[in-house]
Design a protein around this nucleic acid. Sequence first.
DNA 1: TCAATTATTGACTTCTCGTCAAAAATGACA
DNA 2: TGTCATTTTTGACGAGAAGTCAATAATTGA
Lengths: 248, 248
Amino acid sequence: MVELTRKQREIERRTGEILRVAKPILVREGFHALSMDRVAADMEYAKGTIYNHFPHKEEIVLALAVQSMELRRKLFEFSAAFADNSRSRMMAIGVACEFYTHHCQEDFVIEQWMRNHSVWEKSSHQRQNLIRQCEAQCMAIVSGIVRDGVAEGSLLVPAGMTNEEFVFGFWAITFGSQILTASSPSLPALGVHDPTRALRIHCATMLNGFEWRPIMNLSEYLSRSERLASDLMPRLHTLRDQHQQTQV
Amino acid sequence: MVELTRKQREIERRTGEILRVAKPILVREGFHALSMDRVAADMEYAKGTIYNHFPHKEEIVLALAVQSMELRRKLFEFSAAFADNSRSRMMAIGVACEFYTHHCQEDFVIEQWMRNHSVWEKSSHQRQNLIRQCEAQCMAIVSGIVRDGVAEGSLLVPAGMTNEEFVFGFWAITFGSQILTASSPSLPALGVHDPTRALRIHCATMLNGFEWRPIMNLSEYLSRSERLASDLMPRLHTLRDQHQQTQV
DNA sequence: TCAATTATTGACTTCTCGTCAAAAATGACA
DNA sequence: TGTCATTTTTGACGAGAAGTCAATAATTGA
């Protein structure tokens, strides 16, 4: 029994190693470059062994995506508890998103691959569910903040709109901005020189537009964001490094 | 000379046919399923002939993307001229985006493939530039509306923010919402039952938040959007059908 | 120690990409 | 119309990746 678990542990360890080898290939050279032969060669195992762990490379991508989504959830969990009033907590989520975009670029790239239709479709329901769960947990964290805001009386979500639909708008603008920043040929050439700052301004406008108190004017909002970011970011760095330790 | 052009025309016609054959494969079965062998077989030509037209399949995707972006631009051009005051014109752009998402789904899927890093990187600068141009034209149309709004005095873009950065927010939220709707496993399960309506509400909030006059309350905005949509949509359908005729 | 179970291996089949020499079609000119 | 240079088309081919599976090796329990 003890021996069995030793072997079992050995196998689990190798699963992690496969992911560690596959991640930079996927992130830096793309899905096409990630081949089972290559992973096997890099690890000095036979290809069949890799297939014992993952039935195809799409499953490797989803396994990586599970890690990335878990990191995101951890960042959200931590950030959501970092401030006191609901609006600041929402702003802290914004900081977490900025952190994820700028300092967890690899994970962000992986999330994009995960959202690729052909990758998603081919992978196991089990891992799909893990991702869905993680997504739901992230949503629960943020919509929880909205719920608290409503309960505090500092926010009124429009009639006929769920808290989650309220969150959806912020999710969409953050996510869309990330993708455009990463994939639109040349935002600066289009006149978009500082997408991060622009995003902050738009979020501020939305928060004010929904009258989420305390209302702040723009410069107030921006300086608070800056302060929040410099307080929160070091902690997020630690969190991220811890998370990466766990993956070994 | 006349003979030469006949041959030339024959070749151009076939380029179009390749795209017509490739489009449904890419859209319905994904990039992976789009193989040169398959296109050749479907058209009853040899593979080498297809390679005479396109050096690899990535180039086919970008050629399709050029068509899709041109359709988008046409929709924007038409919509931007459809209303009189600047805020309504901005709302008309929103309607055009909704139309594109719901009634030009194939083109939207193609745009996503175009934004895929490995596809983009491999394709010719010439086609990349066509796409960039189209993107810039779309941006120019929308930022033009913003400029007009500022000139009319019905809108004040925050200091230190370009018109394009102002547009960027709307672009991001619209685009992000489209991607999430298309790729997030189950928005309804997350509590997002009507993303389209949610998006409208968020856009309304942003427009009001930036004090783009005439300010409207939510129900006013939604009923106006609805009216604008029912006026504009039939024209956009015509426009789309015309565009598809040209591609033959 | 040995048989049963489990894990690993890499050769093999199938598929696609992208190339290129040979074959076919075209066109200009006598 | 016949000839020949040019252009276009063809499909066989090499390279390389996906995924399978029978043979081999390692591990375990008795």
